[in-house]
C-alpha cells in the first residue's frame, strides 16, 4: 500500500505542468476568445473571423498549403518507406539513418541552407511563394512521414503477401488489397504529423522571406498587435479543427498513431 501512495506522488510534477502550461492557458484563451475588448462576453470575435474575407482567405490558403505539402510528402515517403521495408539490402540501417539525420541538424541552419540553395536556383524567392512554402515544409517534415509508414510496413507479416498471391492475387492486387490497407495506420499517423504542423509552422515561411500568410502567421500577427482576443479566437478555431481532424482519422487508428510516433 505504501508503494502505491509513493507512486501516485510521482504524477504531481506532470499534473502541475499540465495545470500551468496547458489547462490555465487554455482557460485564458477561451476567456479571451469569448470576450470583446471591453471584457463583455459574446461570440463577436468568431463572427468577425468568419465575416472577414482576409482571415477566411488565410484559412483556406493554409489548408491548401498543408494539403499540398502532405500530398507531396506522402508521394515521396510511401514508395521510399515501401522499398526500404520490403527490401533485404544490408545498408538499410544506414539509409534510414541518412533520412533521420537532417532532424539532428539545427532547424535554423537547415532552413538557412535550403534558402541559399533555392536562391541559387530561383534567384528571387519572392516570385514563387507557394512553391517555396511547399518545398520548405516538405523538406522539414518528410522524415515524420517516412518513419511511421516504414514502421508500419515493416511490421506487416510478409506471409500475408504470400497468402494473397497464393489465393490468386497478382502483385498489384496483393498491394492494393492487402499491403495498402494494412499500412494505413502508418499513413494516417504520418499525415497527422505533417498536416497539422504545416498549417501553423510559419517560421519556415518567414525564414524563406516568404510573404504568404498561413494560420500560424495570422495568430502571430494578432498577438504582436496586442489583439489578444482575435489571436485567441483563431487559436481556438485551429484547435477545434485539429480535434475534428484527429477524430476523423479514426479512433481505433490512434493506436497506430502512437506506435508510429513512438520511434521519433
Amino acid at each position: 500500500m505504501k508503494g502505491m501512495f509513493q507512486r501516485k506522488y510521482l504524477g504531481i510534477p506532470y499534473a502541475l505542468y499540465l495545470l500551468v502550461f496547458v489547462v490555465l492557458p487554455l482557460i485564458v484563451i477561451v476567456t479571451y476568445a469569448f470576450t470583446d475588448a471591453e471584457g463583455n462576453p459574446g461570440v463577436g470575435n468568431f463572427l468577425n473571423f468568419f465575416r472577414d474575407p482576409n482571415t477566411l482567405g488565410t484559412l483556406v490558403y493554409s489548408l491548401v498549403i498543408a494539403s499540398v505539402t502532405t500530398m507531396v510528402c506522402l508521394l515521396i515517403a510511401y514508395p521510399t518507406a515501401y522499398f526500404l521495408a520490403m527490401s533485404s539490402i544490408r545498408s538499410k540501417g544506414a539509409i534510414i539513418m541518412l533520412m533521420i539525420m537532417p532532424m539532428w541538424i539545427n532547424f535554423t541552419l537547415r532552413i538557412t541552407a535550403l534558402k541559399e540553395l533555392l536562391t541559387m536556383i530561383e534567384g528571387n524567392l519572392a516570385l514563387h511563394p507557394f512553391m517555396n512554402s511547399v518545398i520548405g515544409m516538405t523538406y522539414d517534415f518528410l522524415p515524420f512521414m517516412i518513419l511511421p509508414i516504414y514502421n508500419q510496413i515493416s511490421r506487416i507479416d510478409k506471409s500475408l503477401l504470400e497468402a494473397a498471391s497464393d489465393l490468386g492475387a497478382d502483385s498489384r492486387q496483393a498491394f492494393l488489397r492487402v499491403l495498402l490497407p494494412l499500412s494505413m495506420p502508418g499513413v494516417i499517423s504520418g499525415i497527422s504529423m505533417v498536416f497539422l504542423p504545416a498549417m501553423t509552422n510559419y517560421v519556415v515561411l518567414d525564414m524563406l522571406y516568404n510573404s504568404t500568410y498561413i494560420m500560424g502567421s495570422l495568430i502571430g500577427s494578432y498577438f504582436s498587435a496586442y489583439d489578444w482576443h482575435g489571436g485567441s479566437t483563431i487559436s481556438l478555431i485551429l484547435l477545434a479543427m485539429i480535434c475534428i481532424f484527429t477524430l476523423l482519422a479514426g479512433g481505433d487508428e490512434n493506436e497506430g498513431t502512437v506506435r508510429g510516433g513512438s520511434v521519433l
Binding site: 506471409s159 504470400e162 497468402a163 494473397a164 497464393d166
Partner: peptide, 20 residues
C-alpha cells in the same frame, strides 16, 4: 509460374489471415 497462376493453395504455419 508465379504462385497466383498455380492451381495449388497453402495453409500457412501462422495462418496468415488478413487481419483487416
Amino acid at each position: 509460374l508465379p504462385p497466383n497462376k498455380r492451381p495449388v493453395n497453402t495453409v500457412f504455419q501462422r495462418y496468415a489471415l488478413f487481419t483487416h
